[in-house]
């Protein structure tokens, strides 16, 4: 293990322990790591967008002859008008272009790519040669989808048939949320194991190289 590698391991161990120190209580070491993290993340996205969007998709094609890209370039720069209150309304034009384009994409993609596809995948033939288990599963999915949608339908009071269906929906939702919670906990715990493993093997292991 070279000196540089040991230095890198110690840097990683320092920030890891500094952030974990918050578990005891808020302290200056944690605050230092937190603010460095915030700054590095902002810098990271700045560098990423600068390279992948501004240089690759705007500047290089533009100097290659695609001069119409000056329009989104100007629209992008107009965003910065927000810093001058008198002219901040100008940034609305850029934002409106972004929102309008995104809405145009969403309107069709959400209906065609999600609603219809999900409904199609829900309505399956019960007798398809896969046996009773598959048919039971298809029925569970249909009941689950309808009752979940009924639960989230707030335009009518949940009484009568709608109320019963919404009640069934709550049970389905609780099962799903429970499963998701379980998955999330396990995901976070596996990250924790990863950090503890790093400290226990890499960092503690580097002690023998130094001392």
């Amino acid at each position: 293990m070279s000196g540089i590698e040991i230095f890198e391991i110690w840097i990683m161990a320092f920030v890891t322990l500094a952030l974990f120190s918050f578990l005891y209580k808020d302290n200056p070491l944690y605050k230092i790591a937190e603010h460095v993290f915030a700054g590095l993340s902002a810098g990271y996205y700045f560098g990423l967008i600068w390279d992948t969007v501004i240089v690759t998709q705007l500047w290089q094609p533009m100097i290659g002859g695609k001069w119409e890209l000056i329009i989104p370039g100007i629209l992008g720069l107009l965003m910065f008008a927000r810093f001058w209150p008198k002219y901040s309304w100008v940034s609305r034009v850029s934002l409106a272009f972004y929102m309008g384009t995104a809405s145009g994409i969403f309107l069709t993609s959400q209906l065609h790519g999600l609603v219809l596809k999900q409904m199609q995948a829900t309505m399956l033939p019960l007798v398809n040669g896969d046996g009773f288990g598959a048919a039971a599963l298809a029925i569970i999915v249909v009941i689950g989808v309808i009752s979940t949608l009924a639960y989230f339908y707030f335009s009518k009071e949940h009484t009568g048939a709608l109320g019963v269906t919404a009640k069934v929906g709550i049970w389905f939702i609780m099962i799903s949320f429970g499963a998701h919670f379980g998955y999330t906990v396990m995901g976070r715990v596996s990250l924790l194991i990863g950090r503890v493993q790093f400290l226990a093997s890499d960092w503690i292991g580097s002690f023998s190289q130094i001392f």
Partner: peptide, 14 residues
């Protein structure tokens, strides 16, 4: 164009 304008919003944030 939307990607480019969206990119500028991230820069604006930074």
């Amino acid at each position: 164009w939307m990607t480019i304008v969206g990119g500028f919003t991230i820069l604006l944030g930074a």
